[in-house]
Amino acid sequence: MANGVLIYAEIRGGELTNATWESIAAGQALAAALGTTAKAVMIGNGLADHAAKVATKDLAEVLTIEHEKLAMYTPDGFAAAMVEAIRDADPEWVVFSHSYQVRDFAPRVAARLDRALIGDVIKLKVENGQVTLVRQIFQGKINADVTCRTDAPRMISFQSGAYRTDAAKDGSASVRSIATEVGSVDIRWTAEERFKEVKGAIDLSAAPRIVSVGRGIKSDENLGLVRDLAEALDAEVAASRPICDNGWLPMDRQIGSSGQTVTPQLYVAVGISGAIQHVVGMKNSGTIVAINKDKEAPIFDLADFGVVGDLFEVVPAIIKKLKE
């Protein structure tokens, strides 16, 4: 009989990810609400140090699956290993962070086990043992309560920031290595080393003030307006993804899940609706100002100060006022 929660602890670039501690906090919370315990599993090669760190948390056990074929991430290797971990732990729930790595291999696990992976969950509600998960749909404009209709194992991935890293409770767990057949798995990928685009890369994480621009600017010819606002505020210019996709600003100015994560004292979002991919990169900013024509834009949920209006009227007026 399946029971307990299995948490996936992710290694990326040889390090445990921050999101792993969030997943541990989420898994512990789910286990507590269901009156059960949580285990963690790690996949890779040479995991002893990382496993020791995870074992300082309040977990029933830390499982490791190690093999030279798992030294570098591949979806074939990691999906096979994760299925083995789930067979070993026989959990009721499996908890992941909604990272790019998880998005790459966890759906394969779901398909192999013929189960659902309820992805990008922001909140968990447990009532009388019935688990309801909250997902954002329509780019964060609407929330949906979602339930899982299958038997165990039921899988969830939590959005970055859904739980705090420091909410992971301390404890002491034993570490157990489980046998793997991954040696016989056909790895259909040849992966090259990870790299960063170094050319002109700018680090926005240290900027005290950022003016960020989104689709609302309509054309690259209008970017001067945003540059003028940034200059008047002594701020750096940044953007949401579509602006960089269009080549209007370089990719290294992009804020969000595929770009940079920033925490300036002041973040001014101009014509940005606040899709989750953007929000994860800026939500911990000090003071957030949002200017958008759509009063329902999710960016207003985060803003300290909101202006519903035409940015082509509002921004010049702000610049004028700042110069007075």
């Binding site: 609407i142 949920d301 202006v307 035409d310 007026a317 004028k320």
Partner: peptide, 29 residues
């Protein structure tokens, strides 16, 4: 058969106290 069921939809509750500034452009600026 869908393995996950979408239940109720709702507009997210604002968790932050947002001060909405209203008026013409000069006033809000």
């Amino acid at each position: 058969t869908s393995r996950e069921a979408i239940g109720t939809l709702y507009i997210p509750v604002r968790e932050k106290q947002t001060e909405m500034l209203e008026g013409d452009a000069d006033t809000v600026a």
